[in-house]
Amino acid sequence: MTSRKSLFRPCIDLHEGRVKQIVGGTLSETDPGSLKTNFIAKETPGDFARLYKLHGLEGGHLIKLGPRNDEAAKDALRAWPGGLQIGGGITDENALSWIGCGASKVIVTSYLFPKQKFSLERLRTISSLVGKDRLVVDISCRRRGHKWMVAMNKWQDITDTEVCQETLDLFSNYCSEFLVHAADVEGLCQGIDEDLVALLGKWATITTTYAGGAKDISDLRTVQRISDGKVDLTYGSALDIFGGTLVKFQDLVDWNKTVLSKS
């Protein structure tokens, strides 16, 4: 019998200080013209944080995609202190300051991979600094053949690290959660990477959130089934609060209420 049920986990993606939904694979520092944006919000980051707070949607991820996002991020954290995790440019030098700004946890990726090579020393350093319970490791990835390789720098650079049982076991000694964007399907609204979700359900021993391609409320049931309830799901461009037409935010709120009332 499944002891855990998959939940909807909200997100706020920041680009140039605005809440946006972006096709993940098009983010590039060397070719800014390649960027494809599905949605730019009129509302502030704080507005979205207050919406999530109103509905008790804890553990959402607030991601700074590139520079000029710090003030926007602080706006969201002020709106719901302790309700959001923050990622994007997190290092040992700024992690504690973001906790001080109200982030419940910090999410780290690129810092762990100097020159695209995994550094266990850096993982240990930042885990000791903020505490395992306040650290989320982002193992967002791109598919290469039959493997998924961790991608960094807005998912443009492939690291030397494979998303696999060995990697998750090692990393879970130093963090309390994983965040996994399937960058190849991020923002496309063409369906989740079911193969990856199933493997995450098999491998993960700590809370894990998957993002990428979700386009229907039924995707939550699919994630629940193929991960045995061990993986949570984020919706982006398909969601009505982000300009989408495929998924209603209220339906996801109701899903969580139902799950949590039974747990």
Rank of each mutant, 00 (worst) to 15 (best):
W80T: 05
V185D: 04
T2L: 13
G82T: 11
I206W: 09
A238H: 07
F113V: 02
G46E: 06
P114K: 07
S110T: 15
I126Y: 01
Q21R: 15
F48R: 08
C164A: 12
A183R: 02
T205S: 14
V247F: 04
K115D: 14
W155D: 06
H181F: 06
L220W: 01
M152Y: 06
D138I: 08
S218K: 14
K202M: 12
D138E: 09
R134D: 03
G60Q: 04
L188H: 08
G236R: 05
G201A: 07
A204I: 04
S227A: 11
L200P: 04
E162Q: 13
I241C: 03
Y111S: 10
V163L: 08
T44W: 04
G243V: 03
G87F: 08
G60R: 02
A204W: 06
V259L: 05
I158D: 00
V163C: 05
V197W: 03
D240C: 02
D251Y: 04
D219H: 07
L196D: 08
D160S: 00
L65S: 14
D216K: 09
K53T: 07
D193R: 05
G187V: 10
T30Y: 08
Q165N: 12
E58I: 10
W155N: 02
H181Y: 08
R78I: 05
I63R: 02
N69T: 12
V185W: 01
Y111K: 08
V108W: 05
L120V: 11
L188S: 07
L220N: 02
L170V: 13
G100K: 12
L7F: 05
G87N: 06
F242G: 01
L62K: 12
D228P: 05
G60N: 05
L233K: 01
L129R: 11
V253F: 11
H15L: 15
T209Q: 08
F178Y: 12
S218L: 13
K36L: 14
E71G: 00
R124N: 12
L220C: 09
A95Y: 04
K132T: 08
R134A: 13
H146Q: 11
Y174L: 12
A72I: 10
T2Y: 14
S172V: 09
D228R: 14
K5H: 15
E194I: 10
D195K: 09
A182P: 02
P81W: 05
E121D: 13
G201H: 05
K248V: 04
L170A: 07
T161H: 00
L123N: 10
F39E: 01
V23N: 04
L246M: 15
D133P: 01
N173C: 14
R50P: 01
G17E: 09
L35A: 00
K257P: 00
K230C: 03
G229R: 01
L220Q: 01
I86Y: 12
S261K: 13
I126N: 07
Q85K: 04
V180D: 07
L77Q: 11
D193M: 03
R124A: 08
Q116S: 13
G59I: 00
F39P: 03
K53L: 12
E93M: 11
I192P: 06
S128Q: 14
R225A: 14
Y174G: 12
E166R: 11
Y235E: 10
I12S: 06
A95S: 10
R144S: 13
K117D: 00
E58W: 12
L14G: 10
I241H: 01
K202R: 15
V180Q: 11
A41D: 12
L7I: 02
